[in-house]
């Protein structure tokens, strides 16, 4: 057989490659649904990094010390960088960043619902770094083995930076718990507000997750929502106890037989409310992003025009 005439592999061959843990690369054939599923997941992840700049960025100008300010700035900058890696990974699937941003603005594309909660006090910066970044790490570590090459490689890069995010958040909480009563109360209040939304970050229970089964089969997702959530709880509960914080769940208890913590029921109505646009800050988050994008339009245009002029004058010289 002439090797240059590549057979278009069908879904079976594709699945066989997935099963053999081969990475799928941008130029490889892939089922359209796999592509769409990836675009949905990676862009949602990218938007989350970008929208996540807001609740934390809110405190850059108000950080309580110069050292905390510098650390927070570096952290928020990292998140913007993650957004960049992930937009680039999504673009390999044949969609532009402009289209992705448009989908975010129309609501066709989502971002992590947790960023629709406000960061009211400095302790929230601790809670976000500790819990939200922990949850992100648990999820992202599992995605380092995702079947799509560019996504997997973006995850490897991102995971390298995440542990610093988690540590700085936990360090803020620890410092508060070693401080005055006012500071300890501030830390506990932040945990009370961020605990359940953090658990919701892993999405619906396995049985009710709309995209889970197919995503697992295609190895876009590697571990189930409940599985990841359990790992997060097991870690976070011990970290909370180590610094004297009380996890706001009366049903929480260690289960010897399972070797895991049992925890209470998640309020899925709250989850639905926030995800469908009615959390405390949904409107503000989106409005903020739209405004920055709109106000930057003339800059992006100027850049494009200037580049075109440069190209033209270079051609003249040549």
């Amino acid at each position: 057989m002439d090797k240059r005439v590549a057979l278009v592999p069908g879904e079976q061959t594709f699945q066989a490659r997935i099963d053999a843990e081969e990475k799928i690369e941008p130029k490889d054939w892939m089922p359209e649904k796999y592509r769409q599923n990836l675009i949905r997941q990676i862009s949602q992840h990218a938007h989350s990094e970008v929208i996540g700049e807001q609740p934390e960025g809110n405190w850059i100008t108000r950080a309580p010390s110069l050292e905390r300010k510098a650390i927070l700035m570096a952290k928020v900058q990292d998140e913007a960088g993650h957004g960049l890696y992930l937009y680039a990974a999504t673009e390999t699937l044949g969609i532009t960043r402009e289209e992705l941003i448009d989908r975010l603005h129309t609501g066709a594309s989502k971002y992590a619902s947790i960023f629709n909660y406000p960061s009211l006090t400095w302790a929230d910066i601790g809670a976000i770094g500790w819990l939200v970044d922990s949850a992100a790490i648990v999820n992202q570590v599992s995605l380092q083995n995702t079947s799509y090459g560019p996504y997997a490689r973006a995850m490897v890069r991102i995971c390298k930076e995440e542990s610093f995010h988690q540590r700085q958040g936990y360090n803020i909480m620890m410092t508060l718990m070693n401080g005055s009563q006012v500071q300890r109360d501030m830390a506990q209040d932040a945990l009370d507000r961020w605990w359940w939304p953090s658990l919701m970050m892993f999405g619906p229970h396995d049985g009710e997750s709309a995209h889970s089964a197919q995503s697992m089969k295609w190895k876009i997702k590697r571990r189930s929502n409940d599985d990841l959530r359990q790992q997060f709880v097991d870690q976070a509960v011990q970290q909370a106890e180590a610094i004297g914080l009380v996890v706001p769940d009366p049903d929480l208890q260690w289960d010897d037989a399972r070797g895991h913590y049992d925890f209470g029921a998640i309020d899925w109505e709250e989850f639905e409310r926030v995800i469908s646009g009615n959390g405390p800050c949904n409107r503000q988050r989106l409005a903020h992003h739209k405004r920055a994008h709109r106000e930057g339009a003339w800059v992006r245009e100027a850049m494009a025009v200037h580049e075109a002029k440069q190209r033209l004058s270079n051609e003249d010289v040549a």
């Binding site: 960025g57 700035m73 900058q77 960088g81 937009y87 903020h288 106000e295 930057g296 800059v299």
Partner: peptide, 22 residues
């Protein structure tokens, strides 16, 4: 400069302005 974080005309500029601010 740090006031620009999340408000720049595009993502690369969020990062670059943040760098200079830092």
């Amino acid at each position: 400069l740090s006031e620009w974080m999340s408000r720049a005309p595009f993502l690369e500029e969020d990062i670059a302005l943040g760098n200079v601010a830092l």
